[in-house]
Amino acid sequence: MRSSRNRRTANEADRYKKLKVVSSPHNTPGGPSSLVDHVEDILAHSETQQLLSYFDKVVCDSLVIENQDIPNPFRAYVLPFAYEHGGILHAVLCLAECHMIGLDDKGEDMTLALVLILLLVDICESGISTHGVHLTGTSIICGKICERPNAAESPRKSFLLAILAWLDVLRGFSGAEKLSYHQTVREQVFRAEYFNLETLVGCPVDFFYSIGTVLETAKNHMNGIVSLDDFQTVLSNAKRFFQSWNADDSVYPSNDPMWKVLAEAYRHVCIIRILRFPDTCAIPCSAVEIQTSVAAILDVAAEIPTDSPWFKRLVFPPFMAGTETAVPHQRGYVDLCMNEIKRTTGFQHLAIRDILTKVWDARRGQLNMAVNVPWMEFTCSKDLVRQHDYLFL
């Protein structure tokens, strides 16, 4: 399977080069007036007016109990924004089209792209996606796409599937029960003939697929589908894979040595997560196996210059290292990394800060240091009233 993915032919390279980003005058920064003009241009199309009319007369009525004495809130409060804000306009048009004719090939991509932007808004705003509705809602669509024999032929679909499936796996780190994408989606991402996942986050697709298998098995174990013995076998095999992995045997988007460096950080992220199964409290963070991976992640962070474009993709590995330490100088270095990434990307990652603070405070108050303080307890514990997705990118 892996070898077939690595055979990128000259034709595929040419196909990749033909992908062009078509820009309009309104794609360049031009202040509020250009944005208003952009909305007005879209509104000028007859197709846009038909979809807005359909949203007004059909979709709005289908969403509420009609009452002559009370205005329809979608018609009164949401629809007017579509005439002022490009993002809301596109969202309204997408919903109207989906409701009117169902999803064709392009409609599927539009829906996934819309959800992706909403997820990025969540990440930018707080790092928390309320109740996980966005990712969970697209899991069925992604599953159906991956059942088709030609799913891998579209670079756009490959990109959308890769980043959404990656975010699904990341939320699975905080609690395997949150994983909603089926293994067939991760298989599709693994087999794709493009470097979408690697160039997006720096994590080799082999790691994504392997840790995704671990998380799905953990979910099935929690649901009583997989026995503890079978789960332990999967964990042992995955641990062996990550510990024996050789960076020189993998294929990267380019010859830049930083790909291997970043891959090393994600390798130890996966090792840490595997060590936390099946009991997240069993091994203290001071254990040699845990600290070996923590030190390796922080060494990677120290090896990448902070002004390098590679450094901004280090959000998740230092976070994982931070959740697994009680050592002051390690906590301090994690803080430095996070602050630099916040400064260079503009994403504040408030949820990361909140989780780290809670974990570190809990460790300071520990009476029994032989018991771990799992960061997952602050994201999807049974004691929490609300279960949200914690997302990182």
Rank of each mutant, 00 (worst) to 15 (best):
T292Y: 10
S293K: 02
S293C: 13
S293D: 08
A295E: 14
A295P: 03
A296C: 13
A296F: 11
A296D: 05
I297Q: 10
I297D: 06
I297G: 08
I297R: 08
I297W: 08
L298H: 11
L298G: 08
L298W: 11
L298M: 08
D299L: 10
V300Y: 12
V300I: 15
A301K: 10
A301W: 07
A301H: 02
A302W: 07
A302D: 11
E303N: 12
E303W: 05
I304M: 08
I304T: 12
P305S: 06
P305H: 06
T306R: 12
T306G: 05
D307N: 15
D307H: 12
D307W: 04
D307G: 10
S308R: 01
S308T: 01
S308A: 03
P309G: 03
W310H: 06
W310D: 00
W310R: 05
W310M: 05
W310V: 04
W310E: 01
W310G: 09
K312M: 13
K312Y: 04
K312Q: 15
R313C: 10
L314D: 02
L314F: 03
L314M: 15
V315L: 11
F316I: 06
F316D: 05
F316A: 07
P317E: 02
P317T: 01
P317V: 04
F319M: 03
F319R: 02
M320N: 03
A321P: 00
A321M: 03
G322Q: 01
G322N: 00
G322Y: 00
G322A: 02
G322C: 00
T323M: 07
E324S: 09
T325S: 00
A326S: 14
A326I: 14
V327K: 08
V327G: 04
V327D: 09
P328Y: 02
P328S: 09
P328V: 14
P328M: 08
P328F: 10
P328W: 05
H329P: 06
R331C: 11
R331Y: 09
G332M: 10
G332L: 14
Y333F: 15
Y333A: 07
Y333K: 15
V334N: 09
V334S: 07
D335R: 12
L336H: 13
L336A: 15
L336Q: 13
C337K: 13
C337N: 09
M338D: 04
M338C: 07
M338R: 12
M338W: 10
E340S: 15
E340M: 11
E340P: 01
E340F: 04
I341M: 00
I341W: 02
I341T: 03
K342E: 11
K342T: 12
R343P: 01
R343I: 04
T344H: 07
T344C: 01
T345G: 00
T345R: 02
G346T: 02
F347Q: 08
Q348D: 06
H349P: 03
H349Q: 10
H349G: 08
L350P: 01
A351K: 06
A351R: 12
A351I: 06
